[in-house]
Design a protein around this nucleic acid. Structure first.
Lengths: 103, 103
DNA sequence: TTGACGCGTAGGAAGAACCCTACGTATTGT
DNA sequence: ACAATACGTAGGGTTCTTCCTACGCGTCAA
């Protein structure tokens, strides 16, 4: 597991950024417009996302386009899978309980 | 999305605890034995997990058994699903590219 | 009832996170 | 060449996190 993937996603601002990037790459000003904080602060959030590999940067003239990257999210899904098994067992237990109730 | 679910999972110690709890409920001392930190610190981590709903507590004599809870993990899976669609598209694009290469 | 056990919480130190403004750098339009 | 645009980074204040030790409370065993 990448060290600070969860830490990167722990911030609501950064989750909102990743959500915005689902619609495609965007420049920083465009992203910053969605928040009530200074543009440099958004830049710092982008740095955290970049360090976690969640986002990549491509220069385009004087803009920098940030693009969502899939790999860390796949890792997250893999991290989750043992727990997925866990909660499916819980659901199965519940179903069993309900079946007994039907007797 | 529960406010601090990601924050709760951002700590390696807390992820290790949830992983340990996959095998079933455990008392605090049992959990603390897996870490090179003081038992009260582990208690504080458990409080964070409890506040995030990831863990529940059941008193049993003078022990407190901590149990993994499935609900927040299901939420996490749901949060991930739009991104899952996203990375599947990426894989589809890649496959298409490889197909063109075959011409 | 007295002592040991299992645990939570208070208080505090050290470091990290988060936000700001000020400034530097590269690129574009005139 | 010059001003404006788009952005990153430095420096700094404030608050959160994470760990510690000290202590208090409930439970069990003798």
């Amino acid at each position: 597991m990448t060290a600070d993937l969860f830490a990167a996603l722990a911030s609501p601002v950064r989750r909102e950024i990743t959500s915005l990037l689902l619609d495609g790459p965007r420049p920083v000003n465009d992203l910053a417009a969605h928040f009530s904080m200074s543009r440099p602060s958004v830049s710092e959030h982008l740095k955290v996302l970049r360090d976690a590999g969640l986002v990549s940067e491509r220069r385009h003239g004087r803009q920098r386009l940030y693009r969502l990257e899939a790999a860390p999210l796949r890792e997250l899904s893999q991290w989750l899978s043992p727990y997925e098994r866990f909660w499916r067992e819980k659901l199965a237990d519940l179903r069993e309980l309900l079946d007994e109730e039907d007797l």
